[in-house]
């Protein structure tokens, strides 16, 4: 513990610790409250007694009230599809930007970066027209299509690829490896931490995405959990709060558990993804 000045080290530290814990408690409160109502009978929604009986009924009720199993399957398929396509497309593009010289390179790179500002998230009207023209409305592919080529992913991987020493390329080229082989055997293995970081960011982003899936889907077979949850909790049929909270926790559960287990990696990968 670093001593402050003027001989008040302990007072200073204590003050900061208390303030930090207070803010942290405030920040955890909504989540703790949701967990409390979800694991207790409805009668204890606002009565905080330690002897309140625990129950999983709320989860069972929520699971039975809407096709959440199907929603989960849809989300998992969607997130996997997007991740695979992003990895392939962004890797190839990033390799091109990092290692080849060709006419129009800097202009094209500017156009790629433009996507950081003009995201598909706000181009919902025109993208809906495109998807409708392709006849793909209400398919899982349609939810992912606008996100397959990610400006952020290309940028991140290009930065990583550029930091790989060129001597490695030349050594590999002398041995007669093709460009694809070079990418596969040298570049991708060396960029593993970046892939992990980008993967975590991408999965959590698309697991949580709502507006575009809401627009482009209209059946149980395609809806991801976020859209399913909004439909479930918008029904005015007097569903108890405890059941809604159970459903809410259920849909964010996998991410939340993954986050608790891999907290350090999560924070570090967001950090890595943020450093530009």
């Amino acid at each position: 513990m670093r001593a402050g000045r003027a001989g008040w080290p302990d007072f200073d530290t204590a003050l900061n610790t208390v303030a930090m814990c207070l803010l942290a408690f405030l920040w955890a409160l909504p989540l703790l409250y949701a967990i409390w109502t979800a694991i207790h009978p409805a009668a204890y929604e606002t009565r905080f007694v330690l002897t309140a009986p625990l129950t999983l009924d709320n989860f069972a009720k929520a699971w039975a009230a809407a096709p959440f199993a199907r929603y989960f399957l849809n989300t998992v398929m969607l997130v996997t599809l997007i991740l695979i396509c992003q990895f392939v497309l962004c890797t190839l593009a990033a390799f091109a930007f990092a290692r080849f010289r060709f006419p129009g390179r800097s202009l094209l790179f500017t156009l790629v970066l433009l996507q950081l500002l003009v995201m598909p998230d706000i181009l919902i009207v025109e993208n809906y027209k495109t998807i409708r023209a392709m006849g793909l409305v209400d398919t899982i592919i349609a939810i992912g299509l606008p996100y397959f080529a990610s400006g952020f992913g290309i940028f991140l991987l290009r930065q990583t690829f550029m930091s790989i020493p060129r001597e490695l390329d030349e050594a590999a080229r002398v041995e007669g490896i093709s460009f694809l082989g070079l990418l596969w055997r040298v570049y991708i293995p060396l960029a593993k931490p970046t892939y992990l970081a980008y993967g975590l960011v991408s999965v959590s982003h698309h697991w949580n995405n709502f507006l575009w899936p809401l627009i482009i889907t209209n059946s149980v077979e395609t809806r991801p959990v976020t859209v399913g949850l909004s439909i479930f909790s918008a029904v005015d049929a007097g569903i108890e709060w405890s059941v809604i909270n159970a459903a809410t926790l259920m849909t964010s559960g996998p991410l939340l558990i993954a986050f608790l287990l891999f907290q350090r990696q999560f924070v570090q990968s967001f950090m890595r993804a943020g450093i530009r």
Binding site: L92, A93, F100, L111, Q115, P120, K129, T130, A149
Partner: peptide, 27 residues
């Protein structure tokens, strides 16, 4: 080199133009 560059780049650019630049201009 530039042939390869364009080759590696084209799949991503296709999607990028179709779902970001084209809709932005069309808006």
């Amino acid at each position: 080199a530039w042939v390869y560059g364009w080759l590696f780049l084209s799949p991503a650019l296709l999607f990028l133009f179709a779902f970001t630049h084209y809709p932005a201009l069309n808006t």
